[in-house]
């Protein structure tokens, strides 16, 4: 008898749909059949572990080969926890973002904005025992995309987290407070509930800000947690 507690179901208000007509790329890529319900087993409740020894951290994205990237230097820090408030220690966070001009160090990004030889926009950090992480970067620029006429993505940083098991896997984007593009962005707006969308926006934090050096933003991640009582499949 396995007594593995499944993860809580994802609450509908925090769950963007597969089919989001305002985000045009979903049109041919969303499933049309009902998903098959499945109670988690060891396959879904376990997941990879990454050690910093084998997967070295890069905690300062703002410097490449000792040279400083252009842009507004920022510190991003916060906690990774589960829905039950338990910290997720020693877990890897992957980070990628555009440069200060809104251009990705990526061959498919053809936006007419300058590349920065001192910025790649790739990082990897690990949480400590308390589930805390911190890294240094520059504020990513906004960039146009072709979803609809005059479409622009808000300032954002991409994140990938693994959590306690494969079903807790999270890839998301962190936004910045007060961005007037947020209420126009179909990707951000695809999250049904306003309160859940707010959880994608970092907070400016003077206590994280380092005088004469960098602005601080706080952003916490909440990953799926185990349900209180183990449920058994009949």
């Amino acid at each position: 008898m396995t007594a593995l507690a499944p993860l809580r179901p994802i609450p509908p208000e925090a769950d963007p749909p597969y089919d989001a007509p305002a985000y045009r790329s979903t049109e041919k890529r969303h499933p049309t059949h009902k998903l098959l319900p499945w109670v988690h087993t060891v396959t879904e409740l376990t997941g990879p572990h990454f050690s910093p020894a084998r997967f070295p951290a890069t905690t300062d994205l703002s410097v490449v080969n000792g040279k400083q990237a252009l842009g507004e230097r920022i510190i991003v820090a916060g906690k990774v926890m589960d829905e039950n408030g338990r910290p997720v220690p020693n877990t890897m966070i992957e980070i990628w973002q555009a440069n200060a001009a809104g251009r990705y160090h990526h061959p498919n990004d053809q936006h007419d904005a300058p590349l920065d030889p001192n910025f790649r926009g790739e990082g990897r950090v690990f949480t400590n025992e308390a589930g805390e992480y911190r890294f240094i970067s520059i504020k990513p620029g906004r960039y146009p995309w072709r979803n609809h006429p005059n479409a622009w993505r808000p300032h954002h940083i991409h994140f990938s987290l693994f959590g306690s098991g494969f079903a807790a896997r999270l890839i998301t984007q962190m936004y910045f407070p007060g961005d007037p593009l947020l209420p126009l962005d179909p990707i951000f707006l695809a999250v049904p509930d306003a309160a859940a969308r707010e959880r994608l926006i970092a907070r400016f934090d003077l206590s994280l800000t380092e005088p004469e050096w960098a602005l601080g933003f706080r952003f916490d991640f909440v990953l799926r947690g185990k349900a209180a009582t183990p449920m058994e499949h009949p």
């Binding site: 769950d15 829905e83 408030g85 890839i171 984007q173 990707i187 859940a196 969308r197």
Partner: peptide, 11 residues
Amino acid sequence: MHGLTPSQTIG
């Protein structure tokens, strides 16, 4: 209970 961080596209 802490509210879940919603998913966004990998892009």
